[in-house]
Amino acid sequence: MQVLYTASAQATGDGRDGHVRTTDGTVDLDLAIPKEMGGAGGAANPEQLFAAGYAACFHSALRLVARKAKADVSGSVVEAEVGIGPNGSGGFGLAVTLVVDLPAVERAAAEQLVETAHQVCPYSNATRGNIEVALTVRETAAA
């Protein structure tokens, strides 16, 4: 693979109760363990960062495949839900649900676009076979 861009970030402090910063300074955030996991909450966490990245990346892939299919993706939205929990082997794992709104596309076509985007998206390709990823087309799809 020819690398076109490399992002670099550093984590300091106590990991999930620490700080992250990209080397260029565009991301600079305190982190906190969510209350649901016994922490104080009130700051970003790695799952939120992963969800934001996956949603943006998948939306970009979706728009790419939609352009090729000449589909109207105006008003489209991608929401990534990232869950974390014990994996049964002493560690933790992630589960992702991608919820896609394509209000101007008929449901069957929307489902096909989402599935095709899932084959194109770098996050989907990186996680395939490693974590559960569910794809959902919200009921706002055109009738």
Rank of each mutant, 00 (worst) to 15 (best):
S8P: 02
S8R: 15
A9R: 13
Q10F: 11
A11S: 14
G13W: 12
D14T: 14
D14K: 14
D14Q: 15
G15H: 06
R16Q: 08
R16D: 07
D17M: 10
G18R: 09
H19C: 10
T22W: 04
T23N: 12
T23S: 10
T23D: 15
D24H: 05
D24Q: 04
V27N: 05
L31A: 04
A32D: 00
K35I: 11
E36Y: 00
M37E: 10
G38H: 10
G38R: 04
G38Y: 09
G38M: 02
G39A: 09
A40I: 02
G41I: 01
G42A: 02
A43L: 04
A44F: 13
A44L: 07
N45V: 03
P46K: 10
E47M: 07
F50W: 13
F50Q: 03
A51D: 03
Y54G: 07
Y54Q: 08
A55K: 03
A56E: 08
A56M: 13
A56H: 05
H59Y: 11
S60C: 08
A61D: 01
A61R: 00
R63E: 10
R63M: 04
L64K: 06
L64I: 08
V65A: 05
A66P: 01
K70G: 03
D72V: 04
S74Y: 02
G75K: 06
S76Y: 04
V78Q: 07
A80S: 14
A80R: 03
E81W: 00
E81L: 11
G83L: 05
G85A: 02
G85N: 01
G85H: 03
N87R: 07
G88C: 03
S89M: 11
G90K: 00
G91A: 12
G91R: 09
L94Y: 12
A95I: 08
L98Y: 04
D101Y: 04
A104K: 10
V105P: 00
V105Q: 00
E106L: 03
A108K: 12
A108V: 13
A109N: 05
A110W: 00
E111V: 12
L113A: 01
L113E: 02
T116E: 14
H118K: 05
H118V: 04
Q119D: 13
V120D: 06
V120Y: 04
C121S: 14
S124R: 12
N125D: 15
T127A: 14
T127I: 12
V133E: 08
